[in-house]
Design a binder for these strands. Structure first.
Lengths: 207, 207
DNA sequence: CGCAAAGCAATGTGATCACATCGAGAAGAG
DNA sequence: CTCTTCTCGATGTGATCACATTGCTTTGCG
């Protein structure tokens, strides 16, 4: 009944996650270039041997970390939006969560930026990135479509195209905040303004 | 009268540029991680010794490449806009040049993305990045202000804030094109739409 | 209890890195 | 022509890397 410590039913997945988390932490703090068996093991508080045991190839470790980052991000956003049904509120939360405003979101966006660069020279990561964005843009587009059904978003607007623009803007602003080009609150305001412009540009039709 | 091949007046700057160009080429083709004395020397067609001679510290080589990239970018955009006086045309050219559409722009944006990631873990690059963006955002804001003076841009609009948003959008879209998330022409269209929305949202006031 | 296998720490290996060092050769100065 | 100084190719060095190998320890199982 108790979890086996060995064999196919062992806590492998938990250990792998622990290591993947360490990869994310190192990437957030010192960039992808600092990710090595040694640094990851140290950060995870395990031996380098164990890291190698769970990830015989570094490539797989990076990919696992990428997936882990996406899972954590989804979980965080799901927790943040809760069971809210209002699509505009959900959209606003999802997009503003991209703009760094605390330790967790800062770390997350630093990791995202690291993978973003990696995707340009690593086809496996690039493919995952494409799938991830297809999902993400689709989610935002769906929220806009729900708005259209409720009449709060103009029918003339292409939900996918608008979703792409909103996310691109949010990520561009997120980087400015990360590197200190633009203050976080101002970036958030810019984003909220753009979201507001998406909803009922003609204010008299609200019901 | 002829250029000395040695001493303080030698063709040092030209050699340094040649090496910096090789750094940019390697970064564009294989990412910053592939930039080393060996790879750069090979790409530049010179000996590793010469690379080390001109850049005793790798850090300086990277910084020189960053500056060189900015100089090349400015020159390319200046050549592209020409002596045009119409601020909207200039703004459109500058922004759409950010979206990859040929070999040169693709390479340039790949390099830019590489430095973008580097800035998050290298304070010297981050500082240069901040200065570079301050200049860039300022340039776009100036173009918008000229539009306001001509009455083609609403006075109510904050030029700096709008400039930041436009550039952020353009860069976000540029990345989507680079990694194959979004087609280039569509990204360009999205950008043109956003630029159009900045100019005279009320079409009847045009003279 | 004994044993086969799994978990995993420790160590080895060859490559590559940034950077140091050295010396040959070229070019200007006297 | 000689000498000095700059250029820069060649080679050395120690660190770090990903990954291979080895073998001890633990665990489940008969």
């Amino acid at each position: 009944m108790n979890t086996p410590t060995r064999g196919p039913g062992a806590e492998h997945e938990q250990r792998r996650q622990q290591i993947a988390d360490a990869v994310l932490a190192v990437a957030a703090e010192r960039g992808m270039a600092a990710v090595s068996q040694t640094s990851v093991a140290e950060r995870a508080g395990v031996s380098p041997g164990r890291v190698q045991h769970y990830f015989p190839a570094k490539r797989r470790m990076i990919e696992a970390a990428f997936d882990r980052g996406n899972a954590l991000s989804s979980a965080r956003i799901a927790a943040r939006t809760g069971p809210d049904a209002d699509p505009r509120q959900v959209l606003t939360t999802v997009l503003t969560e991209l703009v760094p405003h605390d330790t967790v979101t800062r770390a997350h966006m630093r990791v995202r930026q690291a993978f973003t660069a990696l995707a340009l020279s690593d086809e496996a990561i690039a493919e995952r990135m494409r799938r991830e964005y297809e999902r993400f843009h689709g989610q935002i587009a769906d929220l806009l479509r729900q708005g259209q059904d409720r009449g709060t978003v103009p029918r003339a607007l292409d939900p996918v195209e608008r979703a792409v623009s909103l996310v691109a803007l949010a990520e561009g602003l997120a980087y400015y905040v990360l590197v200190g080009i633009h203050p976080g609150p101002a970036a958030r305001e810019r984003l909220l303004t753009e979201i507001a412009a998406t909803y009922t540009p003609d204010p008299e039709e609200r019901g």
